[in-house]
Amino acid sequence: MTDRPLALVTGSSRGIGAAVARGLADTHRVLLGGRDATALSALAAELPDAQPWPVDLSDEAAVADAAARIDNLDVLVHSAGVARLGDVADSPAESWRANFEVNVVAVAELTRLLLPALRRAHGHVVVINSGQGLSAREGWGPYAASKFGVRAFADVLRAEEEPHGLRVTSVYPGRTDTEMQQAVVAGEGGEYRPEKFLRPESVADAVSAAVLAGPDAHLTDITVRPRPHR
Rank of each mutant, 00 (worst) to 15 (best):
A45E: 09
F197H: 11
G187Q: 11
A50M: 13
P48L: 01
D90Q: 12
E191V: 15
A98T: 13
R227L: 14
D36V: 12
E191I: 14
R158S: 09
P200R: 14
A217W: 03
E109L: 15
P173F: 11
A64K: 14
A93L: 08
A83W: 00
T111F: 09
V104H: 11
Y143K: 09
A62H: 11
T10Q: 05
W140M: 13
A144T: 07
Y143E: 09
A7Q: 07
R193A: 15
R119I: 13
A42C: 03
V126P: 05
Q181R: 12
S95E: 11
E109Q: 14
R69D: 15
V168F: 07
A210Q: 00
P52H: 10
D177H: 14
Q132F: 10
G190W: 11
T178M: 13
V102L: 13
P163N: 01
A18W: 13
P52Y: 08
D36Q: 08
S95Q: 12
P226Q: 06
S130G: 05
H78V: 04
S202C: 07
A206R: 01
L31K: 04
L32V: 12
S95G: 08
S170W: 02
L166P: 07
G86P: 11
E94N: 01
D26G: 15
L219K: 01
G189P: 05
E160S: 06
G23I: 05
E161G: 00
E109A: 12
N103H: 02
R35P: 03
A80C: 07
D221Y: 02
M1S: 06
R4Q: 13
L198K: 04
R112G: 03
Q181H: 05
H164D: 10
P228L: 13
G86K: 06
L113Y: 06
G187E: 13
L134E: 12
T111Y: 06
V211D: 00
A186L: 09
A44R: 06
L212Y: 00
